[in-house]
């Protein structure tokens, strides 16, 4: 069977439907939360700049009952329109996201590449050297990477490498070196996590019966490990890639703040401190949609990796 027959369109349709339901829940929840703010940001007597008042009125009808506001917001979201900013006249939430997307996507993508391209090999090397110094060293560093919060990694490395040694710029992405510290700080935790996971998963896999079969066939130890051990041990690693994406997003809030990167995360944190409620709402919904897309992609990756999985049979 090839992967297409294990993933009938019915399944895909169901998945997309489920995503839409979840998204609806997220929209409703964020809308409700933002309307629950004490004093209420959407109370019409609020002192707003007249242009914003006008834009909001056009968008939500602030004088309208809440359910009408909700419906018109929902209608907007369906048309990929997240409405005007609550704070900045003439700025739409869409444009805020569009502006930050490139920066966040670049650093995020680089971070994922680091997680996979450095974390997995580190785990393999550790597993191959189980109990010897490369393993001990790698796992010690990984323990640190998991324990030390990203903002600590970011600030300390900012001080050491940018302010003290001057090897990298302290902020901005004008130079390729500007990417090093943010990407490192962003991916530190997951690199360590994936290294540990790869190691333990590989060691566990190498204890399975079919590894013994592979050895009994007379395959060299390397072939046994790479051809039979590695692929199977990657299945749990792929499972965490979904959460990785999610956490890189939230991680970007603090990293973009520390390194003064104009990404979505920074916009998000700024909107929170500015109490820019429509921006908070819009960015949250954008995140949710993005994440669900990522999880779908991870599921498809899974399908390719593990032939036992068949999404068709699932009830």
């Amino acid at each position: 069977m090839n992967s297409a027959s294990r993933m009938p369109l019915a399944w895909l349709g169901q998945r997309v439907l489920m995503m839409l339901v979840t998204l609806l829940a997220v929209i409703t929840l964020t809308f409700a939360l933002m309307h629950a703010v004490p004093g209420g940001p959407f109370v019409s007597e609020k002192m707003l700049a007249p242009e914003i008042e006008a834009a909001l009125n056009a968008k939500f009808g602030l004088d309208q009952p809440v359910w009408r506001q909700y419906l018109s917001y929902l209608w907007g979201v369906l048309q990929f329109d997240l409405g005007p900013s609550f704070k900045y006249p003439g700025v739409s939430v869409n444009s805020m996201i569009a502006e930050g997307l490139a920066v966040t996507a670049q650093t995020g993508l680089l971070a994922i590449i680091c997680v996979v391209a450095l974390g997995v090999p580190t785990g393999i090397v550790a597993a191959l050297n189980r109990g010897r110094w490369p393993d001990t060293l790698a796992m010690f560093v990984a323990s640190l990477g998991i324990a030390v919060p990203s903002y600590v990694i970011a600030t300390v490395s900012l001080y050491v490498f940018a302010l003290r040694l001057g090897w990298t710029p302290a902020f901005g992405l004008d130079d390729w070196r500007g990417y090093i510290l943010p990407v490192f700080a962003l991916s530190g935790f997951w690199m360590s996590f994936v290294a540990r996971l790869t190691r333990s998963s590989l060691l566990e896999t190498m204890e399975l019966d079919y590894i013994m079969t592979a050895r009994a066939k007379g395959l060299p130890a390397r072939t046994v490990m790479l051809r039979h051990g590695l692929r199977n041990s990657m299945i749990p690693v792929v499972t965490v890639l979904g959460p990785v994406v999610a956490n890189l997003l939230t991680g970007s809030f603090v990293i973009e703040q520390i390194f003064a990167l104009p990404g979505i995360g920074r916009h998000f944190v700024l909107s929170i401190t500015n109490r820019d409620y429509t921006a908070i709402m819009g960015i949250t919904i954008f995140y949710a949609a993005f994440l669900m897309l990522m999880i779908l992609i991870v599921d498809l990756l899974y399908l390719w990796l593990d032939p036992r999985i068949s999404y068709g049979d699932r009830k």
């Binding site: 979840t22 997220v26 999610a246 997003l249 939230t250 949250t284 995140y287 994440l291 669900m292």
Partner: peptide, 9 residues
């Protein structure tokens, strides 16, 4: 559904 969105958010 709850777990789809990062809890931090």
């Amino acid at each position: 559904i709850v777990a789809t969105i990062p809890l931090t958010l």
